[in-house]
Design a protein around this nucleic acid. Structure first.
Lengths: 227, 227
DNA sequence: CCCCAATTGCTAAATAGTTATCAATCAGTT
DNA sequence: AACTGATTGATAACTATTTAGCAATTGGGG
């Protein structure tokens, strides 16, 4: 689908990309390390240099609702800069991650000098909102099986053709808002239909495209998420 | 509400507000009239001058999933200008409505001249995304009763203290993603608890603040959850 | 002012999802 | 190679929700 990538960096000119990189501090995080917490108010923009970050919300009971993954070039924390809102999500490193961290003041200054930057941030935000709205809609319309497939596809976004999703089934279940038992049934079905292979803490999608086709056939709204 | 209003106009200087108003065409819509359809691609920004607009999605089967209401000063259609994405929602007039309609070209030109405008659009978008994320989260965590109250409160946002929600129960049910029967049970409960009064095509909230307090008490998830 | 289509209220049977278990499997550690 | 905590797989009883009716109520149009 047209519409563009939600990665900030892809909407910037090489020159501006370089300026941003230059003005930021690179911070490295090890697997599992927390990058930001829900509720934090310290403002700043983060752009992923290398690796993948988990985005989600930890419940008081320890459940983790995964909202998605961010890959290289994608940013987060924008709204801590432009609004006085606290962070909505916890972000943690999924494997080793490097982040360009930009201090709020420096970023707003850059925006004043380079309106192009402001436009790019706006564009990625709008694209994200769009994705979110479509997601919200499908959550209400689609049955669990379709929703599960949709979530797995979006989580495998950063993988290659043969995707591995490294997560516990219970986390997936929380993300979908269902119990582990219900998810288990759906996953077993999907396995017998040869769409996925279940492992210990890992789900393999042997053929993403096949899965996408299946979903599109069910869900006559075409997918927003595109590699 | 901390964090700011999602209305574009409140984030603009009086001067800029005037310029925007001046550069736009005012279009009037009668009750029920369609303003924009999901899937439309013709770009342009709309700002509500007077009245209230319905935002939602019509399903193929005629169901209408209401996503919310927009009041004076709020805008929509931003992303048709900055991305190539089609509209996600159908927007229709709820009572008589007047809209400032701004052609895409004119708006982008204005943005280039006045970066303040770009910032304001970004801010409202970010605030909306924030609201959306919190909504998505509560959809997964809260039981139907709480979700219903939340939706009704958000729909009555533009009413006074004694709010009237003019809608069919079946539309509400679709918006919540449940059947009319389930919603009916919840509504009956809420009525016996004297939080709402059910009528024909209308639900009255005699005391918004009481309802808000009830929701806050139930929803002890403060904005900031700690692990 | 009465009629009629739309909407609400209600019920029952069927389905989907949850909680609570417990056994089996896995991967990392000793 | 055996141990151990974490995770998956499976089952049963229970609860919530849906579907499919039909009756009662409503409000606008003729």
């Amino acid at each position: 689908m047209q519409g563009g990538s939600p990665a900030l960096m892809t909407h910037l000119s090489p020159a501006l990309r370089q300026t941003l990189t230059y003005q930021s501090n690179v911070i490295k995080y090890a697997d599992g390390q927390l990058i930001h917490s829900r509720g934090d108010i310290k403002p700043g923009l983060s752009i992923i240099k290398k690796g993948v970050a988990n985005v989600g919300v930890y419940g008081v009971d320890g459940t983790f609702i995964m909202a998605g993954l961010l890959g290289a070039g994608e940013c987060f924390g924008e709204f801590t800069i432009f609004t006085e809102l606290p962070r909505t999500h916890d972000v943690s490193a999924n494997g080793d991650v490097e982040i360009h961290q930009l201090e709020a003041g420096r970023f707003t200054k850059l925006c004043d000098e380079e309106p192009e930057l402001l436009k790019a941030v706006l564009k990625t935000t709008l694209i994200r909102t769009h994705i979110l709205l479509e997601l919200l809609d499908s959550m209400r319309r689609l049955p669990l099986k379709e929703r599960t497939v949709k979530l797995m596809l979006s989580l495998s976004y950063h993988s290659g053709r043969i995707a591995q999703i490294r997560t516990r089934q219970s986390d997936l279940a929380d993300s979908l808002g269902v119990s582990r038992v219900s998810l288990g049934k759906v996953l077993k079905q999907l396995q017998t239909e040869e769409m996925i292979i279940l492992g210990y803490r890992v789900i393999t999608i042997p053929d993403r495209e096949k899965m996408e086709r299946w979903l599109e056939a069910k869900n006559n709204t075409p997918l927003i998420i595109k590699k």
